[in-house]
Each structure stands twice: as C-alpha cells, then as structure tokens.
Computed example of a mutant assay.
Amino acid sequence: MPDTAGVAGQPGATEATPTEFARRVWQLYEPLHAVTYFSTQARAAFESAGLRGFWRGYFAGRAAPLGAVMAAPVTAAFFSFAPGMVARAIPDVWQRASPEQALAARLDGAVAALRAVLPDEPEQWAQAAGLLETPAGAAVTDGRVLGAANAALPQPTDPLARLWQAATVLREHRGDGHITALVDAELDGCQALVLRDALYGGRDQLQPNRGWTDSEWDAAAQALARRGWLTEDGRPTAAGEAAHEAVESRTDRLAARPWTALDPSEQGRLTQLLAPLAEAASGIVPYPNPIGLPRPTQ
C-alpha cells in the first residue's frame, strides 16, 4: 500500500503539515497520472491517432495542452530532456496528429488503462475525483506553464476521466514548481539528473530516456564537482546532498498551497479513497522508473 502514515484523517495519525501532505498525497495521485506513460492502453490510443512509437505519444500527449508548439518551449517546460531529443519529436508530431487529437488519445488511453486495473467501484471513483478537483481548481498557476495549460482544458464528465485530469493538473503544477526550485538552485536539466543519479543511481534509465550524450553527462558531472556537490569520481558530497534536499523541500512547499482548499477531514477521506486506487495503478508502473516515482510502501 502507498504510505499514508501521518496524513490527516488516518487512524492514529498526527495532522500533517501542508508540505508533508503535499509530498505524501503526490505518491497517491502520481500513479494515476502515470498510466499515460506505461500502459498498453495508452500506447494503443496514441498509435490509433497516428503517433507510433513511445516518444511520439509522450511528447505529443504531454505537450498538446500547449497547442502546436515548437521544440524550444517544450524543452524549457519539460526541463530535463536534451534539446536534440525534443527536436526529433517536435514539431513533427503535429504533422501526424493535431493537439486536439493527441489530447483525446491521451485521455482515452488513460481512462481505458485505469478502468482495466482499478477496483470496479464507480461511486468511489466519483468521490475521489470530486475531492481531487478541489485542490486542482484551487491551484494558482502563475508562472506554471504545464499546470496552467492542463488546468485550462475542458472538464470531462466520466468519473475516471475527471480523476485522471485532476491528477494531471496537480502533478504538472507540482512539476512546474520543481523546475522553479531547480532553476533557483542554478541547475540545468542534465545536472539535475546527474545529481539524482549520484544520490540514488539510475543513470542507465535517466540518461537514455532524456537523450543526453556521454560527453554532456560528463560535463554536467564536472560542473557539479566544481561547485563542490560531487567528488571528482562522481560521489555526492554533503553539500550536494544538502542542495538536493533543499530542492525537494522547496518543491513540497511550492506544491502545498492547493491542498489547503481541503480541510483535514477531507484530506483524510481523499487519502482513504486514493490509496487502493494508487496501489492498483502502481501495478502498471515499472520500478525504478524514469519519472522518479518511488515504489509504494507495503
């Protein structure tokens, strides 16, 4: 089960601070969003729209709320992808499917994936969607490009579509804040990945899935070593660990505000509703994975 210890409303739990709740609830709604990347249903929906190949579906589906945008803004908004990798997909994907077609495909695929794995309890889907829509609607999106673009999309009526879209608004809102924290720390996309790899491993997934060359990866490591965040042989220093923790803490702080739209009892009810859904959706997500989602705590 995903970890809900210490979340308001859980039996025996002390009330979580807004930043604590923001991090813990992220682990519950992120698996619901992530089916769009890892499910066979999502892949099939993108391919039916003319987006064959994983990365065409990924870039078109995630960028579609921005419209038929060029590569440079997508590189900036997605942050950790090498510009050349983005340019191989954008703007070519818009010749294969319009943003409207890509949006329809990503929602259809995500809903089909969730319907296939979630407990067949439509009333609970609707309750969870209604509660999740409250913070999604309260999310201030100033300066948050992907959060704003997703929040501006029409609200669907199907309960699973509502649930997925609310989760997507909140995860992109959080992601925009994470990028803000990384930029403030004067990290670029490759350096952020190199620091994460030094702390937790995963280069074999992170580097190819973000398109960075060996020379770019090595240059990022050297830049971090000059800052005193890595040793010359690539191990994290105490300063590097502290810098990473500061970024994560600021990400949580920047993600916290929408959740104040729910009172503690509503937060507790939301976690109760989301926990079994997150556990079921997590079965689709590989661990480790290139999006940084931790394995649910049993």
Rank of each mutant, 00 (worst) to 15 (best):
L118H: 01
A181K: 04
V194Q: 04
A152P: 13
L107Y: 03
L153Y: 05
Q165A: 02
A113L: 13
S215M: 11
R203K: 03
A139D: 00
L170I: 02
Q191A: 12
Q155M: 10
A136S: 05
T231H: 06
E232S: 15
G202N: 08
A151P: 07
V111Q: 10
G189S: 01
D214N: 12
P156H: 07
L107F: 06
W217I: 00
R162E: 01
D204L: 08
L224A: 08
R106P: 04
V117W: 14
A242W: 10
D197A: 10
W217E: 04
A152I: 10
V140C: 03
G175N: 07
G109A: 09
G143P: 05
Q191E: 15
T180M: 14
L131F: 01
A225L: 13
Y200N: 09
R171K: 13
E172S: 01
Q127C: 02
E232A: 15
Q205I: 07
V183I: 06
E121K: 06
Q207C: 05
L131P: 00
P154C: 11
R196F: 14
E123G: 08
H173I: 07
A198I: 10
P208H: 09
P154R: 08
G201E: 09
A225D: 15
T237V: 04
R203Q: 14
R115T: 07
R226G: 10
R227S: 12
T168I: 04
Q191I: 03
R144P: 15
P236W: 06
A128Y: 04
V169R: 09
D120W: 14
D184Y: 10
A136T: 05
L107E: 14
G177Q: 01
W125C: 00
A225R: 12
Y200W: 11
N209T: 13
Y200Q: 09
A198L: 11
R162W: 05
A167Y: 12
A126N: 09
Y200D: 10
D204S: 05
V194N: 01
V111L: 07
A136E: 03
D142K: 04
E121N: 12
A219T: 14
D158L: 04
T237C: 02
D218G: 02
H173A: 08
Q165K: 10
D218K: 06
A151W: 05
R106D: 13
D176E: 05
V145F: 11
D176M: 02
A128H: 03
C190V: 09
